[in-house]
Structure formats: C-alpha cells, structure tokens
Amino acid sequence: MGSALLVMDFQAAFLDLFDDPAGVVDRAAGVLAATRDAGRPVVHLRVAFPPVGPPVPAANRMFGQQFRGRMIEGSPDVAVPDDLAPRPGEPVVTRRRTGPFAGSDLAPVLRGLGIDALVLTGVSTGGVVASTVCAAADEDLALTVLSDAVDDPDPDLHAALVGGLFPQHARVVTSAEHLAQGRAR
C-alpha cells in the first residue's frame, strides 16, 4: 500500500473567494512537482456539474445556494491554474457535493491505486478539506494535512481547523516540513 497526494478544488470559482490565493497555490504546486518528480501517485478532486439536469436542491447551502448555476463543466469556474493542472494518467475525480466520497469515484480510484494514506492540499479548509479529513479518517486512511497548502477565505476558521480538528485525525505539518522529511519521495 502507499500514499497519494490529493489536490482538491484549486478551481477559479473557489480561488476567487480569496484576496490573494497565490501563496497557497504556489505551495501546493511545489508539493505537486516534488511528488511527481518522486514518481508518487497524484489524484485530483474537483467540483463540476453537468450543463443540463436537475439543479442541486436549495437545501444544500454550498452548491444549491451559494454556487447555484455555477461550477458547470467546461465553464471558467472550474478552471485550474496551470501549475496545478492534471497531467495525462493522473486520475481526476469529479464530485457534486462537499464530501469527497459522496457520489464520486474516489474510493474505487484509491483502492485501484493501492492507496492507504493521503497527503491533502486544497481550498477551502472549511469545505472540502474538513470534509475530506473526517470522511477519509472514517475510511481508515492515514492522513497528512499540509497546513500551508490548504487555505480558507476565513483565516480564523482555517486556524481553528488546522490547530484543533485536524490533529485529531491527521498529521499536520507545513509543506516545507513534509518535503524536508522526504515524504514526497
């Protein structure tokens, strides 16, 4: 079994919520490059909805209200910065809920790759990252959260999750600490 880097939701609509997402994007890109150089698996997780079909119910505050009519497959909302874009052969898992496993192919992709541990990068800390930490812990996956390669538009929420909730389920380190420990290799 092995570990994979999970690159989550670095998409235009989410990055637009930040005053300056460059730092988190650069740190995630650095870890992504090191992981690829080491020949380790990378899995991309993203949100995208089909252009036709029933809308997400309004009871879903995130996708049924805040992002209603957005994150449509092929739209600028789902674009990813070039430094974080998937390469051929890297799995891309599309989901339609905050949770990484709900209605997606993430679990079978991870099983197929022989993955029992995840290193997490992504936005936002209070959305997909928190959901992934909790859900992946329930799936008995070993977790590492890169505290500076995840971010949230609300810095207080980010700090509370990284310093409070996440250490209950995951190893929490900076991207530099992760790379210095040779974890991408």
Rank of each mutant, 00 (worst) to 15 (best):
Gly30Met: 06
Arg96Asp: 04
Ala33Leu: 08
Ala29Asn: 09
Pro41Met: 11
Val52Arg: 15
Gly99His: 06
His158Glu: 07
Gln11Lys: 03
Gly114His: 14
Thr98His: 04
Asp105Tyr: 00
Pro21Trp: 14
Asp148Ile: 12
Ala28Ile: 03
Asp26His: 06
Val56Leu: 01
Ala13Gln: 07
Ile115Gln: 01
Pro100Tyr: 01
Val47Arg: 10
Val78Arg: 05
Pro76His: 12
Gln11Asp: 03
Ala135Lys: 03
Met62Glu: 00
Asp16Thr: 10
Pro76Gln: 09
Ala22Tyr: 03
Ala137Gly: 10
Ser147Tyr: 03
Leu15Pro: 11
Gly74Trp: 11
His169Ala: 04
Ala160His: 15
Val78Met: 05
Gln181Leu: 12
Gly164Asp: 05
Leu118Phe: 02
Ala176Asp: 15
Met71Ile: 06
Thr121Ser: 09
Asp154Asn: 11
Pro76Gly: 07
His44Asp: 09
Gly122His: 07
Val93Ala: 00
Leu110Trp: 11
Ala102Cys: 00
Gly122Glu: 13
Ser104Ile: 00
Ala12Asn: 15
Asp9Phe: 02
Val93Tyr: 08
Arg87Phe: 12
Gln181Glu: 14
Pro108His: 08
Thr94Gln: 01
Ser75Gln: 01
Pro50Gln: 10
Leu157Ala: 13
Leu120Glu: 07
Ala170Met: 10
Leu165Asn: 10
Ser75Val: 04
Ala142Asp: 14
Pro55Val: 03
Thr125Lys: 09
Asp156Ala: 13
Asp83Phe: 08
Gly114Met: 15
Gly39His: 03
Phe101Asp: 04
Asp20Trp: 10
Pro155Cys: 03
Gly64Ala: 03
Pro86Lys: 10
Gly163Glu: 07
Pro76Thr: 07
Arg68Glu: 13
Gln168Met: 09
Phe166Cys: 03
Ala29Gln: 10
Val47His: 15
Arg36Asn: 08
Glu73Gly: 05
Ala107Gln: 11
Ser175Trp: 15
Gly30Ile: 11
Ser147Thr: 02
Ser175Lys: 10
Arg171Tyr: 00
Leu118Gly: 00
Val93Lys: 02
Leu120Trp: 05
Ser3His: 15
Val7His: 06
Ala59Lys: 12
Ala79Gly: 11
Val56Ile: 11
Val109Asp: 14
Arg61Thr: 06
Ala59Arg: 15
Phe14Pro: 06
Leu17Trp: 05
Thr121Val: 09
Ala38Pro: 02
Leu143Tyr: 08
Asp19Pro: 07
Ala48Pro: 02
Arg171Gly: 01
Thr174His: 05
Ala28Cys: 04
